[in-house]
Design a protein around this nucleic acid. Structure first.
Lengths: 135, 135
DNA sequence: TCCTTGTGTTTCGTTATTCGAAACACTAGC
DNA sequence: GCTAGTGTTTCGAATAACGAAACACAAGGA
């Protein structure tokens, strides 16, 4: 499958609207996760592989090629790192991280109320400037 | 494969960190796109299928089940619609949309400079409050 | 030099996911 | 009862991901 590129037709859309190309690219397995891990700075491929438990090397390198040819990451002396555009993307993903936290709380409440026990959990919402931290 | 749920182990992460569950869920093909289309309001399954060119019904219904059991969408009289949590998610995705637009510009420039012809394109950046519009 | 260890990367057979078309079930209007 | 429109499921074929092994290369030590 070709790497989706804004401006051209992509899977699921013939208009080339950028968000559609992005969704095609990031909808591929592990793409978002690899990006997420790269926020912490340059990292070697083997280390990245170790951090993404369950990711296979063949898919890793496929994603690395796609993200590289999309101008989001670039190979460097220390392995791979985000380009400026990629770093912007990392920041654009921050609201998703915040959403995920509140989502987790709501899902938890929903599950807890089945046992009718309300325990106000410590709210692990990210108030900080989003320092890249590992999972 | 089970629907990823925050708090539990998911594909690629055993810690249950919400963002990991979210990435597992949205990393599945068409998940993000279906969400995107639903921002415009309730829509029937067949209409949704028509809007997502290339999406097969079998995958659509699988995603609809997953998103429903994740509390992001819900069946309604008019088909499917976003829950409040799902609507929040739609808003959390807005920066990604903006990023995609600037990404498209940069990718375009990069491609254009190969032919050394600079045509300052009309910049289709979304300044509006992100009115859900179709592709 | 030979050996080990650590990288980055590719290959390939197996397994899982998606596609794509067709079908089934139900409802409303004629 | 027929038709047309939904929502949904089924199933074989095509595609993508897994997973382990291998190859290539460089650095460091015996």
């Amino acid at each position: 499958m070709p790497t989706p590129r804004p401006g051209g037709p992509v899977r699921g859309s013939t208009t080339g609207r950028p968000i559609m190309a992005a969704m095609d690219l990031f909808g591929r397995r592990w793409a978002l996760r690899i990006l997420w891990e790269l926020r912490a700075g340059p990292i070697g491929a083997r280390a990245l592989l170790a951090q993404c438990e369950g990711l296979s090397s063949s898919v890793l390198y496929q994603r690395l090629r796609e993200l590289t040819s999309s101008g989001i990451i670039t190979p460097s002396a220390d392995g791979y790192e985000l380009t400026p555009t990629g770093a912007d993307l990392g920041r654009a993903l921050a609201p998703l991280d915040q959403w995920a936290n509140t989502w987790a709380q709501k899902q938890k409440q929903e599950h807890d109320q089945d046992q009718n026990q309300d325990q106000d959990q410590d709210e692990r919402v990210d108030h900080t400037g989003r320092p890249p931290e590992r999972d």
